[in-house]
């Protein structure tokens, strides 16, 4: 007993300092996430400010012409092209709209099938299979969009007398939509399963068919969760890079026709920053301004979506 008491006198002191050290390391590790965010925000804002010193921010935000590659006039502002981001925004929105038109209904209906119609054994097989889609690297989707889907659409368009560009927004959007199906489906599935069974039973007990119960009671009740999921999906689709880099166009065209070739914010970031570059040219700096825009928009979407989803979960907990 005496030995134990003696031993434990020195030990706590040592243990105390070791534990202080461990705790400091733990806190340090968890602040890496903060540092990353600070790093992102700081580098984007710093480079963007340098860009806006050369090209006025209003030209960037409201300009209708984007052609960073060519110098139109030697003495022109920025002396290397036009930096109006509107065509890029429209292109991004066009492709995202196509993608969400596919992923929204198909993802939601897949979730309806899995949660309301499929037996548990069918569900346990189909759900993981569908989720393989989410695990496929985006570069593979890009390859498929560019090599398979785009030529199909082009030939299909020719057959019915439509002029489909070989780098159409449609091809990129369709494939991006399919990539997003499991994402929408899994979030909608969670939202639908969170709706209490008693509501479904209540609807069935007054004589609804299953689809009436789903359409008029279950989906409306799950709507906040589904909407939050769609916002998250939108943010992913807007930030998606490889599919558009490989399957969408490079030249900025202000159009809403999905059969045309358009370019997106992410495509331009990649094009501007790959290959030989001088780092101080407005051309490369504009990529950071685009990055800042992308980051701001996706962040706003994510924050809103996470808030909606959180509030929804608490409602039925």
């Amino acid at each position: 007993m005496r030995e134990a008491t003696q031993g434990s006198k020195a030990a706590p002191q040592k243990r105390f300092w070791t534990e202080r050290l461990i705790m400091a390391v733990l806190i340090l590790c968890s602040s890496v996430a903060i540092l990353t965010t600070i790093g992102i925000v700081a580098s984007l804002i710093f480079e963007s400010i340098r860009f806006f010193q050369i090209v006025p921010i209003t030209d960037f935000l409201f300009g209708l012409h984007w052609s960073p590659q060519m110098a139109i006039r030697e003495d022109q502002v920025g002396s290397s092209g036009a930096f109006g981001a509107i065509p890029l925004l429209v292109g991004t929105l066009l492709i995202s709209a196509v993608a969400l038109t596919v992923a929204g209904p198909v993802g939601l209906m897949s979730a309806v099938f899995l949660s309301e119609y499929a037996s548990s054994s069918v569900r346990s097989k189909i759900k993981p299979t569908l989720e393989i889609l989410a695990g496929i690297p985006t570069v593979v989707y890009g390859f498929f969009a560019a090599i398979v889907v785009a030529p199909w659409l082009r030939r299909g368009g020719e057959a019915i007398g439509l002029d489909v560009s070989s780098e159409s927004a449609l091809a990129a959007g369709l494939v991006m939509g399919i990539m997003t199906i499991p994402f929408v489906s899994s979030i909608s599935d969670d939202a639908i399963t969170a709706v209490p069974t008693s509501l479904k039973e209540g609807a069935l007990a007054v004589g609804s068919t299953r689809s009436e119960a789903i359409k008029k009671v279950i989906i409306p009740a799950a709507l906040p969760g589904i909407a939050g999921g769609l916002l998250l999906a939108t943010s992913r689709v807007i930030g998606e890079t490889m599919i558009v880099v490989m399957a969408a166009g490079l030249t900025a065209k202000l159009t809403l026709n999905p059969l045309d070739a358009v370019t997106t914010v992410t495509v331009q970031i990649v094009t501007l920053l790959t290959g030989d570059q001088e780092f101080d040219s407005p051309k490369t700096l504009s990529a950071f301004a685009l990055g800042l825009m992308l980051f701001t928009v996706t962040l706003a979407l994510n924050v809103t979506a996470l808030k909606i989803v959180k509030a929804y979960r608490e409602q039925y907990d």
Binding site: S198, G202, G207, S208, V217
Partner: peptide, 19 residues
């Protein structure tokens, strides 16, 4: 569907629709 219009039901826990 027709059967359930003829035989109504009230549940253990009140389950009004969120409407």
């Amino acid at each position: 569907v027709q059967l359930r219009t003829q035989v109504g039901m009230v549940f253990q826990k009140p389950n009004p629709f969120p409407k």
